[in-house]
Nucleic acid binder design. Structure first.
Lengths: 251, 251
DNA sequence: ACAAATGTTTTTGTCGACAAAATGCTCGAC
DNA sequence: GTCGAGCATTTTGTCGACAAAAACATTTGT
């Protein structure tokens, strides 16, 4: 569900709605809007500098991507996360992506090979974390590599679903990496994966990809300790009720 | 992407937006809005009796389901259809649904068996066509049977994607059946499929399902002759330009 | 004749305003 | 002290209005 790589010519300027949609998605993926958090339109209005109409439409779009929940008469909230969801996400990703990867390897031509190699090269040059947080550039590179690998798959539907699932996973990943430090051999995983793909070994590549995704899940589960709760819990102040006024910004 | 089977209790009345979304989807699936057709908000406003805001939001929601295209500064149109898309849809459906079906058979309990049996029984009692057109009730029953079969699958994500693909397929199916008469042994296909599923034979069931979906594609491709054109082509009047006024309702 | 340029009309994208619904607070009964 | 009813406030869902953009019709130039 990326902004379909700018078709050069006949494209017109993106509407405010589109811009807002992208920013909103980015904020959800980046964890700046917490899982389960209520999306008060009026608030976001100031945050994104647009009226409520584009905001509302942006939320609607994101609903179908599974990043936002529409609550029927009580607005929108950020889709909650849970260990169950992460597990489901993982297994679905494994199944879909290995299919797509096999097909991509089968059909990939020289251009594809080039793109994959370039993506890997670029990723290796990027730092994983940057100023404490996960590097946005690394995230982008990582996405590009995975997209490149699958790019020769001829099934738009498969790729479309992949994009959705990837976004979802990214959310968990970024969330967990905030908790733990960087460190790990992700790079080696990618190198092996690319080698198998370019070596036209679909089975091995698929297996490596499945493993790679599994490890991603593992990292996320370990990284994020409070995973039993479906909603991101507020700091566990025991809700002292001694305040005459509003105790909390009315979640 | 159905209206998630009314959770009994704490549900509030659906907003106009939701109603409109469902009606719009139904009209697209039913072919009352043609593939490629432009969705003029003002028009729909009278058709659905609501302002443009809910309409706009409805379109946005359907974009992510792939039934509507958003064109960035030039509004929405019904997603086009094509033979290529149908083929991709079919193969993706085959892959996803056979996975889901296998899992469903694996996990299905007595309740599941009951639901499947009931759905089949109900479907067999329904007439396929009704007053020339495809029976809406048969469509509903058909959907229910397929949903029942997969309902024991534990992966929400898989089911979610299935729902999207099913909607897409339904559009092609209904479109083709308008062209050709009813007739066919769909019923036998379903009986066999259910038998394999309830007999806990995942492999056979999956194989039958794949075949069933393939036949669906075949019917659609044969049924709809003009499938080369990506957009539903207007009646091929050679655009005589001798009209002083507006020659066509400005597509 | 045909293509480019101009002017006109529709349509889109966005905003602000209003009614209805939900939320949170206060007060009183157990 | 807890629970529920009633009231005040916020938030949502929806509409109509406006400016900008696109689509169309026409004129102009060659």
């Amino acid at each position: 569900m990326r902004k379909t790589s700018a078709t050069p010519s006949l494209e017109t300027a993106p509407s405010l709605t589109t811009t807002v949609t992208d920013r909103l998605r980015e904020d959800i993926l980046g964890g700046r809007l917490l899982p389960g958090e209520k999306l008060r339109l009026e608030h976001l209005t100031t945050r994104y500098g647009s009226g409520r109409t584009p905001l509302r439409e942006a939320c609607s779009r994101l609903v179908a991507e599974g990043l936002v929940l529409a609550l029927e008469q009580r607005g929108f909230r950020v889709a909650p996360i849970s260990a169950d969801d992460l597990r489901d996400l993982t297994s679905t990703r494994q199944r879909l992506e290995s299919i797509a990867l096999r097909e991509s390897i089968l059909h990939g031509d020289a251009t594809w090979e080039h793109r994959v190699r370039a993506a890997l090269g670029a990723l290796e040059k990027l730092p994983r974390s940057e100023g404490g947080a996960v590097s946005a550039r690394w995230e982008k590179g990582h996405r590009e590599l995975h997209e490149a690998l699958l790019s020769a798959c001829r099934s738009p539907w498969l790729l479309r679903f992949h994009a959705i699932l990837y976004d979802q996973s990214e959310r968990y990943r970024r969330m967990s990496e905030v908790v733990r430090g960087p460190v790990r051999h992700v790079d080696k995983e990618h190198v092996d994966l690319v080698r198998a793909a370019l070596g036209r070994d679909p089975e091995r590549a698929a297996a490596l990809l499945v493993e790679h995704i599994a490890k991603t899940e593992d990292r996320a589960l370990r990284g994020h300790p409070a995973f039993a709760a479906p909603l991101a819990m507020a700091p566990s102040a025991p809700r002292s009720k001694m305040s005459t006024k509003r105790s909390r910004p009315r979640e």
